[in-house]
């Protein structure tokens, strides 16, 4: 276990000296909520939604979570491309521990990224009970692990062709974010859009967080479905990623 923590800390340390990109993410979030959120709230006037800025802030949290999950997968691919993966594979740790390291590092980065945006969102919404905060954090991490697992599983494509991997991940990201309820409530979506959104994990992540934070359940998907979908996603993709690392990965540079 100590080697896992050592590896995570060693890789993470340069990002924190100084933590420019994390602070920039926080600033971007503040600007998004403070400026764009204020303007868009004037334009969206739907009694079902209520204060759109609150809805929007949760959507931004979900997008940060998705970005960080994707980043974890990309990070793994970069390790392979930079030639660092063979070194990691030669260290005296098991492949399972190596996979845990990747997941834990993704989790640590997600926690750092979300610390300030989540606090601001909770302050805006005003729901600051211990249960709501804990459930909210748990949901975001569960979603983050699911997305990271998905990207890690897809990262093995990059060993064959990094161009194909980039194309697939870019396309998938665009579809998963756009066709979801991250920025629009499910009940206002046109039927075709709603059908597509039902397949996006972000739909379930964002609706579950909103349910926990006390949004009107009438505009959200059933939270029980969300728990089932997010759990299935995290377990299946992380499991697949772990098996692939264990069995398939070889420290060769991609073509």
């Amino acid at each position: 276990m100590s080697n896992i923590v050592r590896l995570v800390w060693f890789d993470l340390k340069p990002d924190l000296k100084p933590p420019v990109w994390i602070i920039m993410e926080w600033v971007v979030f503040l600007v998004q909520v403070g400026v764009y959120g204020a303007i868009i709230t004037q334009l969206v006037n739907n009694p079902l939604v209520g204060d759109y800025r609150q809805f929007f802030a949760v959507g931004l949290l979900i997008m940060i979570t998705f970005d960080m999950g994707s980043h974890t997968g990309r990070h793994f691919v970069e390790h392979a491309h930079e030639g660092r993966l063979p070194y990691l594979l030669s260290l005296p740790i098991s492949r399972t521990q190596l996979f845990l390291t990747i997941a834990l590092q993704g989790g640590a980065e997600l926690a750092l990224m979300l610390a300030v945006p989540l606090t601001i969102t909770l302050l805006i919404i005003g729901n600051l009970t211990l249960v709501s905060v804990a459930a909210c954090v748990l949901t975001l991490f569960w979603l983050g692990f699911g997305v990271a697992g998905l990207m890690l599983a897809l990262s093995f494509i990059a060993f064959k062709s990094s161009d194909l991997y980039t194309a697939i991940v870019t396309g998938l990201s665009a579809i998963i974010i756009r066709f979801s309820t991250v920025l629009y409530p499910f009940i206002v979506l046109p039927p075709q859009y709603a059908s597509a959104a039902a397949f996006s994990p972000l739909t379930y992540g964002s609706d579950l967080v909103r349910f926990i934070l006390g949004f009107d359940p009438g505009i959200l998907l059933n939270p029980y479905y969300a728990v089932v979908v997010l759990t299935a996603l995290a377990v299946s993709t992380l499991g697949l990623g772990a098996v692939l690392v264990q069995r398939l990965v070889e420290g060769v540079k991609s073509a």
Partner: peptide, 24 residues
């Protein structure tokens, strides 16, 4: 390895310290 593997944002002393630490 044949090519030096890149912890490109780390310093040589830190890289060796980390490696020694992980390898016991």
């Amino acid at each position: 390895f044949q090519e030096a593997r890149g912890f490109w944002r780390h310093k040589p002393a830190d890289i060796l310290r980390f490696h020694a630490n992980v390898c016991g």
